[in-house]
Design a protein around this nucleic acid. Structure first.
Length: 264
DNA sequence: AATGCGAGCAACCGCGTTTGA
DNA sequence: TTCAAACGCGGTTGCTCGCAT
């Protein structure tokens, strides 16, 4: 049977001890990663191979990054989740040093919390629009603010490539210049570019999702940022504030935008 | 000081997929 | 081609800690 390591006697469960961590790290230093069941049997650890793998990947691996998610990382998570849904591993591939588990926890504890407070389904298009209209713009503002405040040694900048007259992210109809709302004659080719120190750009355009369009965008025009084009963001600023809560009046504004196309 | 509660996070579990004999 | 073992992913659970009462 697969994953039936539980048939072995005397398996430990629960939190890992320092001794167990040390055993695992030393074993991997000698033999490398992989073959987790063999590792579990040979290392002296009374753990399943699965448990060893998880502990290594989520905690002990040297390049695992600890600490709060930066605004850039949060922005990326929101953006990529809007496109891929709960594909945590896939999303994690684009956040160096972050694990799928961490991203999943972030989504459940922070993002879904907002949905609960707003009493709407976190999978609904309404909530997706609320994310687009209120959360992501605030993250962009944080990203801008942090890049301005450290302009001489900035590692991340955010620019607005909008070719409309909208010159800032302070939102028309309360929206990030993506596709929030749906006024038909509103120009919709705003772009947001996140540039890292090495010059690679992450470009988001406004055609990604809105008003229930997510998950059905054709790949040909769904984004300017394809999988392989997603360069790693540098995330050196760990600015993290706890002002993620949205005022309810803003939410109701979002709902109006959603239901009435922003016409007000 | 004791207790209750909720948030955050580490770890576990079930299941689908991949691999290799 | 088949089948068992291993792997990886996403959902869920449960523990710990901080805060409010």
């Amino acid at each position: 049977m697969s994953d039936n390591q539980g048939a072995m006697v005397d398996l430990r469960r629960g939190p890992w001890t320092l001794e167990e961590d040390s055993l695992l790290v030393h074993y991997i230093a000698l033999h490398g990663e992989g073959r987790w069941n063999l590792l579990a049997r040979s290392s002296g650890l009374k753990r399943t191979g699965k448990s060893c793998r998880l502990r290594w990947l989520n905690y002990l691996k040297p390049d695992v990054k600890r600490g709060n998610l930066s605004p850039e990382e949060q922005f990326l998570i929101l953006e990529l989740h809007s496109r891929w849904g709960n594909r945590w591993s896939r999303i994690a591939q684009h956040l160096p040093g972050r694990t799928d588990n961490e991203i999943k926890n972030y989504w459940r504890t922070r993002v879904q919390k907002q949905a609960r407070q707003m009493k709407i389904d976190s999978n609904s298009s309404l909530f997706a629009d609320a994310v687009r209209c209120f959360w992501m713009p605030r993250l962009l503002e944080k990203m801008q603010a942090s890049s301005y405040s450290s302009s001489t040694s900035s590692t991340t900048t955010v620019t607005n490539n909008s070719n409309t007259s909208c010159s800032s992210y302070s939102m028309v109809n309360g929206c990030l210049p993506l596709s929030c709302g749906s006024s038909n004659n509103e120009k919709k080719n705003h772009e947001v570019v996140v540039v890292n120190q090495s010059g690679s750009e992450l470009m988001f355009n406004n055609s990604l999702t809105s008003s229930g369009m997510m998950n059905e965008m054709p790949s040909s025009n769904s984004s300017l940022m394809d999988d392989d084009e997603l360069g790693p963001l540098l995330m050196e600023n760990s600015l993290m504030e706890n002002d993620e809560s949205w005022a309810m009046d803003e939410f109701w504004h979002a709902r109006n935008v959603h239901e009435w196309g922003g016409g007000m």
